[in-house]
Design a protein around this nucleic acid. Sequence first.
RNA 1: UCCCCGAUAGCUCAAUCGGCAGAGCGGGUGGCUGUUAACCACUAGGCUGUAGGUUCAAGUCCUACUCGGGGAGCCA
Length: 459
Amino acid sequence: MITRESIRSVLQSEVGRETVVFGWVRTARASRNVAFAAINDGSCAENLQVVFDRERFSDDRLSGLLTGACVRAAGAVVQSPGQGQVMELHASTLEIVGSVDDAYPLQKKRHSLEFLRSMTHLRPRTNTFANVFRMRHHLCLAIHRFFDEEGFFYIQPPLITSSDAEGAGETFQVTSMPLTAVPMSEGRVDFSHDFFRAPAFLSVSAQLEAEPLALALGKVYTFGPTFRADPSDTRTHAAEFWMIEPEMAFFDLEDNMNLIERFMKYCARYVAERCAHEVEFFQTHYEPRLGERYRTIVENEFGRITYKEALKSLSEAGANLETVPVWGDDFTSEHQRHLAGNVFGRPVFVTDFPACIKPFYMRVNDDGETVAGVDLFAPVVGELVGGSQREERLEHLERRARQAGMNLETYRWYLELRRWGTAPHSGFGLGFDRLLMYLTGMENIRDVIPYPRAFGKMY
RNA sequence: UCCCCGAUAGCUCAAUCGGCAGAGCGGGUGGCUGUUAACCACUAGGCUGUAGGUUCAAGUCCUACUCGGGGAGCCA
């Protein structure tokens, strides 16, 4: 058994005792009488300064104390006479657990995020990525806590599905057939030889699978990976990302929006409290207005306008925009940023979109031409959430599915939910990694995911 | 997929009109010092992304490609 105390624990404890720490050297420097090493073990953002008395430690023993080396140090926790830290470890023993050679790529100085992206195995050792991944953990917990406190049940939908979830994006196909010799029959792929004896895909959304659970358990949420084969090569798209998809029986669109807003406020408050050091770090190094962003989320009510009102607002801004949308257009990222950034200066809900630009499952409004859908646009990052009240009336749902050219037989189970004990219900989807971008200020989704998968690239 | 920008030492970047390849950091050596991305001196380190072309001369201009970044579209 390895005896060891985390640096987090050391820094939170009292001075005047012996301990043992392990960690990676961030910086090291030697003076005539003493040598210093700042070591970090990932348990917290702060380094522990370890001091070596040079009468006790020969030059030879200290020579392995290089940036990146993994070390074990034992000694006394003492008050630091220096300025930069409250306490430090006065070492009695030093062991180089894992040495480094001079090819170790991480240096004391700042590296570009692009450079670090090329080494996903090493970048967690930098302050930036350690902070991102620590916050990622806390945000996950915030999400589970929020839904638990709200009376939701956490469900795990299948990742392999038989449907290609209408409208949600391109799918990755899953097969056990050899691609070099795909069984064919009458010019078509013969799926009777495939693993499931039918085409199978990686899930692009858990919504359709979550609805039946909501119509039994009341309030449920999913939180897991989603796969999209969209050839979108942008800083906000990943081929594999995590989504939060709550689904609630007896929720109309307004209930839905209220929930989204409570969710966002809860997450921001939770992270601001639990990750105060990390938030401060990101504010200092990446987004000077991050604190303001948190305050805006927590303290202000989100904006709420309809698609129609948004169109009006955008046409008034006309000259300042590249394009002005007309009825039936989807909003571009420029429109989203304008509404959230310039018009409201805070996250804003846009509701009641034309039916023709939204999927078949969104509930048709009384006007017959719009649907009870909602998007949440945030300043800087654009669309964060997409949701809707679901169409619970069988005849409406069938009509819209037919209009969309869908094979009703494939969705028979989905339609049966409306045939037997249907109920008004709503839900939404939120991109977890984008939320993390919003709360860290990181501007590329590839910098908030440990091993990003993107169009044309596996890091 | 389209548009724009970029690629120079291990890293971050300079290099004027096309005219000798530079600095800081990191590495090595020495000095100084309870130091804080320590500091000072010296030192090693380069087929300027790849392949062609123009020119007396190309890091610099032209073409193609590769890789990286940003934007658009689509979405979360």
